[in-house]
C-alpha cells in the first residue's frame, strides 16, 4: 500500500499521467462531439491510426511539426467526412460504417507506410515535439514540473477541454449540435439544417481524433509502427459513455484512466516478478468495461444517437 502512496506523490507519476492522458483527451472529446450531434463514430480507432501515420510521415518527409499536426487533422477530417457522408447524408448503419472506416483507415495507414518506406526494417525516427517549460510557471514547486513542463500538444489537449465545453454550452453552434443529437426535428423547425450540423460535428470531431493519434508519433514517441493505437480509440468510446457525454467529466474520466495506467507501469516494475505483465496490460480494457457497467444505470445518452435523420420523416 505504502509503495502506491509513494508512487502517487512523485512528480514523475503526475507528469506521466498528463502525457498519457493527452491522446485520450483528443480522442474522447472528438467522439463526444460526434455523439452529441447524434452520430456514433466507430471510425475512431482507424482515424487515430491514420492521424498517427500522416502526421509522422509529413515530418519524416521534411515538413515541420505544426503543419504536420494540421495535416493529420486534415486527414482525420477527410475520413470524418467519409463517415458523415455514409451515416448522415445517406443514413446508413453507424455501426457498420464506423467499423468500415476503421478497417479502411488502418489498412491505408499500413499500405501507404509500406509503399513510401518499403525497406524500413527498424522504424525510422523523427525529431518529435520537445518539452516546453512555461517561463516562471514551471518554477512552481511540484505543480511546475507536472503541469508546465510538457510538450505543446499536451497544453493544447488541456486547453481543449474548456474550449469544447464553451463551444457546446455557450454558443449557438454548440446548442445546434446538442439539439441535433437530442431532437433533430426541433432543430429543423428552427430553420437549421440538421444534416449540415451533424456533418460538421463529425468532421470536426474526427480531426480531433486524428490529432490524438498524431500525439503518439510526434510527441510521446518518435516513430510509427503498426498497431500502435492498440485499442485507445475504443477506450475513448467507453470514456464518452463513462463521462455521460460531458466534456468536464470526460477529462476526469480520462485522467483517472491515465493515472491508473501510469500507476500500472510503475507497479509492473515493482511486482513484475510475481504478476505476469499481461495482467497489467489488460487492466485498461477491463477498466473500460467496468466503467461502462458502473455508469450504465445513469447513462444519459443523446436521445437521437444512432437515429438517422431524413427530412420530412416523422420520428
Amino acid at each position: 500500500m505504502w509503495e502506491i502512496l509513494e508512487i502517487v506523490t512523485t512528480v514523475g507519476f503526475w507528469a506521466a499521467t498528463l502525457r498519457i492522458v493527452s491522446p485520450l483527451i483528443f480522442g474522447t472529446l472528438g467522439e463526444l462531439i460526434c455523439e452529441r450531434a447524434g452520430v456514433l463514430n466507430l471510425g475512431i480507432e482507424g482515424i487515430m491510426t491514420i492521424g498517427a501515420m500522416a502526421g509522422w510521415m509529413w515530418v519524416y518527409q521534411g515538413g515541420d511539426l505544426w503543419t504536420g499536426v494540421l495535416f493529420a487533422a486534415l486527414v482525420g477530417a477527410i475520413f470524418g467526412a467519409l463517415h458523415a457522408l455514409f451515416t448522415v447524408t445517406f443514413g446508413l448503419s453507424q455501426h457498420v460504417t464506423g467499423i468500415g472506416v476503421t478497417l479502411l483507415a488502418t489498412a491505408l495507414s499500413s499500405y501507404l507506410f509500406r509503399m513510401l518506406l518499403p525497406l524500413a526494417t527498424t522504424p525510422p525516427k523523427i525529431e518529435p515535439f520537445q518539452i516546453y517549460k512555461v517561463p516562471l510557471l514551471s518554477e512552481i514547486p511540484f505543480l511546475g514540473p507536472v503541469l508546465f513542463s510538457q510538450t505543446p500538444l499536451t497544453y493544447l489537449a488541456l486547453l481543449l477541454v474548456p474550449t469544447v465545453w464553451y463551444l457546446l454550452y455557450r454558443t449557438p453552434i454548440g446548442l445546434a449540435v446538442r439539439m441535433a443529437g437530442e431532437n433533430p426535428v426541433a432543430v429543423e423547425a428552427q430553420g437549421i439544417d440538421v444534416l449540415a450540423v451533424r456533418f460538421g460535428a463529425v468532421v470536426f470531431g474526427s480531426a480531433l481524433m486524428a490529432i490524438g493519434g498524431a500525439f503518439l508519433t510526434m510527441s510521446a514517441f518518435d516513430a510509427f509502427y503498426f498497431g500502435m493505437i492498440n485499442g485507445r480509440g475504443w477506450i475513448c468510446v467507453a470514456l464518452v459513455i463513462f463521462a455521460s457525454w460531458r466534456p468536464g467529466k470526460a477529462l476526469i474520466g480520462a485522467l483517472l484512466f491515465a493515472g491508473l495506467d501510469a500507476l500500472q507501469v510503475r507497479a509492473q516494475q515493482a511486482a513484475g516478478a510475481f504478476i505476469p505483465y499481461q495482467v497489467f496490460l489488460a487492466l485498461p480494457y477491463l477498466l473500460s468495461i467496468a466503467a461502462m457497467v458502473v455508469m450504465s444505470r445513469r447513462a444519459a445518452y443523446p436521445k437521437a444517437l444512432l437515429v438517422p435523420f431524413r427530412r420530412g420523416d416523422r420520428i
Binding site: 466507430l42 455501426h95 492498440n230 485499442g231 475504443w234 477506450i235 468510446v237 467507453a238 459513455i241 505476469p276 499481461q278 495482467v279 496490460l281 489488460a282 480494457y285 477491463l286 473500460s288 468495461i289 461502462m292 457497467v293 450504465s296 444505470r297 447513462a299
Partner: peptide
C-alpha cells in the same frame, strides 16, 4: 451486460478482443 444493464455490446466485445489476446500471450509464454 447488454440485456441486463443495457451496456453497449460493440465496445465491450471490441475491448474483450484485446484482453483475450493478452491472455493468449500469457499462456503461450508461460
Amino acid at each position: 451486460l447488454k440485456t441486463k444493464l443495457k451496456v453497449d455490446e460493440v465496445v465491450t466485445t471490441l475491448l474483450l478482443n484485446f484482453v483475450v489476446i493478452l491472455l493468449v500471450g500469457y499462456l503461450i509464454e508461460g
